[in-house]
Amino acid sequence: MFYWIQIVGVLAFSMSGALTAMNKRMDAFGIFIIAFVTALGGGTLRDVLIGKTPVSWMEDLTYVNLVVAGFFLAIIFRKKLEYLRVSFFLFDTIGLGVFTLIGLEKGINIGLHPVICVAIGTMTACFGGVIRDILCNEIPVIFRKEVYATICIMGGILFFILRKFNLNEDILYLITSSFIISIRLLAVQFKWALPAIQHK
């Protein structure tokens, strides 16, 4: 199930990136690149930083195929996708929880300190969107509008707290991902955001 949820997350992220690029009136190549970095950019950066090469999508073409599928689906159904915005938001949120856990596990598996593992988890979940926004000439959303990354950090901290109680791994994954997904949904519903600090 963890693997299949990850696949849903990659597909949703790639379609989200493609739609963003279309809103910027990019050509087909630009749309594909934005879809690709949105879906796989965070994981690629993570693998490079932890010295894991070739990076994941180079070893398993499933991820590349998912990006290609998301690219074509976004183009073909672009006029109908507006009605599925809520569904995409839900997939995006599920992906956030799953990718955070993947990053945490990658860090744990190579013996990194919990603080670094939380950073790696947050990067895996969020930095595809950061790269997307930079390429689209926007200030990344997570730096100015939403508590997106903060939720990943909170989820990572909860993960390591619960880990001390020697919970079953599946239960640990379920609680952590459910926490991230729930807080994300509440944050959007109630418009939670960190205060902006202005220079006067």
Rank of each mutant, 00 (worst) to 15 (best):
C136K: 15
T53C: 04
I142D: 02
I175R: 09
F36W: 05
M22V: 02
L172H: 10
W57S: 06
L66K: 07
L101Y: 01
M58S: 11
C117H: 11
M26A: 06
I183R: 00
F99K: 13
L174F: 02
N168A: 13
Y148I: 08
D92C: 09
I180K: 01
V86K: 09
L96G: 08
A125I: 04
H113I: 00
S56M: 05
G41A: 11
I139E: 13
F89Y: 15
L167I: 02
K24D: 06
L174V: 04
Y173S: 07
E59Y: 03
L194A: 08
T124H: 07
F32T: 07
R78Q: 11
G17H: 14
Y83V: 15
R25F: 11
V68H: 02
T53E: 09
I180T: 04
G111L: 13
V8K: 11
R163Y: 14
Q6W: 01
T53L: 12
M123I: 09
F13A: 14
T62I: 14
N109R: 13
I102Q: 14
V10M: 12
D133Y: 00
G30Y: 01
I153F: 04
V8C: 12
T20D: 04
S182W: 04
V86M: 14
L45S: 02
I197E: 06
K164S: 05
F72M: 11
L174A: 15
G103W: 06
G107Q: 08
V130S: 09
G111Q: 07
T176P: 01
M15I: 08
G30M: 05
K106L: 11
K106W: 06
R184C: 02
G128D: 01
I7E: 13
V37S: 01
I142P: 15
L162V: 08
Y148D: 08
V115Y: 10
L104Y: 03
W57P: 03
F143W: 06
R144V: 08
V64Q: 01
I76Y: 02
I31E: 14
D133P: 03
V10Q: 05
E82D: 12
L167K: 00
L96W: 11
R78H: 09
Q189E: 10
L45V: 08
P195D: 14
S56N: 13
I139P: 03
V188Y: 03
Q189F: 11
W4E: 09
E138P: 07
L162C: 15
F36E: 12
G103S: 07
M58T: 06
I7N: 06
S14M: 12
D47N: 03
I50A: 02
S178R: 07
I181P: 09
Q6T: 01
L112C: 11
G107K: 02
L172G: 12
L112S: 12
F179M: 07
E82W: 01
P54G: 15
A69Q: 13
L172A: 09
I171M: 15
L84W: 03
L73M: 10
D60H: 10
L90T: 07
R25L: 04
R78E: 05
F165R: 02
G70N: 06
A187T: 11
T62N: 01
I142R: 06
R184T: 04
I108R: 13
M123R: 06
G43N: 02
S182D: 04
V98G: 07
T53D: 00
N65Q: 10
I157D: 15
D170H: 05
L194I: 14
A39S: 15
L135M: 04
C152I: 06
G156P: 13
L61R: 01
